[in-house]
Amino acid sequence: MTVRAVYRHVDWRLTVDPNDDRPQYTAKCMTCGDIAELSFRKAAPEVWCLRHARRTGHQRFCTGALSFLIATCADR
Results as ranks from 00 to 15, higher is better:
Lys42Ser: 11
His52Tyr: 03
Ala74Ile: 04
Ala71Pro: 01
Ser39Cys: 04
Ala43Leu: 11
Tyr7Trp: 07
Thr31Trp: 00
Asn19Val: 06
Ala71His: 02
Phe40Val: 10
Asp75Ala: 13
Thr56Trp: 03
Phe40Lys: 08
Arg60Gln: 07
Ala43Arg: 13
Lys42Asp: 07
Thr2Glu: 04
Lys28Thr: 13
Pro45Ser: 04
Arg4Ile: 12
Ala65Gly: 12
Ala44Tyr: 03
Thr31Ser: 06
Thr63Ala: 06
Val3Asp: 06
Thr26Asn: 07
Phe40Pro: 00
Ala44Glu: 14
Asp21Glu: 14
Thr72Glu: 15
Tyr7Val: 15
Trp48Cys: 01
Gln59Ala: 12
Thr2Val: 12
Ile35Thr: 14
Gln24Trp: 02
Leu50Met: 06
Arg8Thr: 15
Val47Gln: 09
Glu46Phe: 01
Asp17Asn: 15
Val10Tyr: 08
Asp20Lys: 15
Gly33His: 03
Leu69Tyr: 05
Arg60Glu: 05
Leu50Glu: 14
Ala65Cys: 07
Asp17Gln: 06
Tyr7Asp: 13
Asp75Trp: 09
Arg60Val: 01
Asp20Tyr: 14
Arg4Glu: 12
Leu66Met: 12
Val10Arg: 11
Ala43Pro: 00
Ile35Gln: 10
Thr15His: 08
Met1Ala: 09
Thr15Asp: 11
Leu69Ser: 01
His52Ile: 07
Cys73His: 07
Arg55Asn: 13
Ile35Asn: 06
Pro23Asn: 08
Leu14Phe: 10
Ser39Gly: 02
Gly64Asp: 05
Leu50Cys: 02
Ile70Arg: 12
Asp34Phe: 00
Thr31Phe: 00
Ala5Asn: 08
Ile35Lys: 14
Val6Thr: 15
Arg8Gly: 04
Val16Thr: 14
Ser39Pro: 01
Arg41Ser: 11
Asp20Phe: 13
Ala5Lys: 11
Met1Gly: 13
Asp20Ile: 03
Val6Leu: 14
Pro18Phe: 04
Val10Pro: 00
Gln24Gly: 02
His58Thr: 06
Trp48Thr: 02
Lys28Leu: 04
Asp34Ser: 07
Ala43Asp: 15
Val47Thr: 13
His9Phe: 10
Cys29Met: 04
Asp75Pro: 00
Trp48Ile: 02
Ser39Tyr: 01
Arg41Trp: 03
Arg60Pro: 00
Tyr7Gly: 05
Cys73Met: 10
Asp17Val: 04
Glu46Asp: 11
Cys49Glu: 14
Tyr25Ala: 03
Gly33Met: 05
Glu37Thr: 05
Phe68Asn: 04
Cys73Ser: 12
Leu14Ser: 10
Val6Ser: 10
Asp17Lys: 02
Leu66Cys: 11
Thr72Ile: 03
Cys49Asn: 11
Lys28Ala: 07
Lys42Asn: 02
Tyr25Ser: 04
Val47Leu: 05
Ala53Leu: 02
Arg51Leu: 11
Ser67Ala: 10
Arg4Cys: 04
Glu46Gln: 14
Gly33Glu: 03
Leu50Asn: 08
Arg76Ser: 07
Cys32Val: 01
Gly64Tyr: 05
Arg51Gln: 13
Val6Ala: 06
Met30Val: 03
Ala74Thr: 11
Trp12Tyr: 14
Thr26Ala: 13
Arg22Lys: 15
Thr2Gln: 09
Ala36Ile: 00
Gly33Thr: 06
Gly57Glu: 06
Tyr25His: 14
Ala74Asn: 10
Cys73Tyr: 01
Gly64Ile: 09
Asp20Ala: 12
